[in-house]
């Protein structure tokens, strides 16, 4: 067992521990912070697996933006989860069956780092991208070549998905609503002193 495997094993153990923590905690604020931690640990695991682009996205989106958005959603509700009644055994049974099926599904997947997995041996995939993308597309970062050029159509779809999410949020929450305290000008360090009749609050 190499040091790399050991590192990944430790990181995955952290992930499981964090996930259990998120489930068990009643304090929603702490749970949100733990989801940020979860993403950060996952990003660390991706870096160990040499997937820096994925790790970058996970760190920026998972532990950055989505933590903020969770906190924003939390401000609509209370910080404490309501105490639940007794958990139903039937629900547990279904969760165990579903989880078992999902784990059963992973048994077909190639082993971690397998050199003989279909993605590695297929003549038109990894081998071709690594060997020919510099001549065909150019950028030294093969991920960019695949993302923006070879699979540019998919990325167009992803961009439209993000756009759709933005429209949905605008439709549901709206951007125009304002609170009265948002309207009053605020002073911050570096501002010029306020002169009557002259709007010095404007950022220059």
């Amino acid at each position: 067992m190499s040091i790399e495997h050991l590192t990944i094993a430790v990181l995955l153990t952290f992930l499981v521990a964090t996930a259990i923590g998120i489930i068990v905690l009643r304090d929603l604020l702490a749970a949100v912070i733990l989801t940020g931690l979860y993403s950060l640990v996952a990003a660390g695991a991706f870096i160990v697996m040499d997937a820096v682009d994925v790790a970058f996205t996970e760190a920026a989106v998972g532990s950055g933006i989505s933590t903020i958005l969770f906190l924003g959603a939390l401000s609509f509700t209370q910080h404490e989860q309501k105490p639940r009644g007794r958990d139903s055994w039937l629900a547990l049974l279904f969760v165990v069956i579903t989880g078992g099926l999902l784990i059963f599904g992973t048994l077909d997947m190639p082993r971690y780092g397998s050199a003989t997995s279909p993605a590695q041996t297929h003549p038109e995939l990894a081998k071709r991208f690594i060997e020919q993308s510099a001549d065909e597309v150019g950028p030294p970062n093969v991920v960019t070549s695949v993302l923006a050029s070879y699979r540019g159509y998919d990325t167009l779809g992803e961009t439209v998905v993000v756009f759709t999410a933005g429209i949905a949020v605008m439709g549901l929450l709206g951007l125009k609503r304002r609170r009265p305290e948002d309207e009053t000008p605020e002073h911050a360090p570096g501002d010029l002193p306020h002169e009557p009749g002259h709007d010095t609050d404007r950022l220059t």
Partner: peptide
Amino acid sequence: VMVSLFYGFASK
């Protein structure tokens, strides 16, 4: 989209 998500949550 990210900034308007923030505006959406923060202004309400």
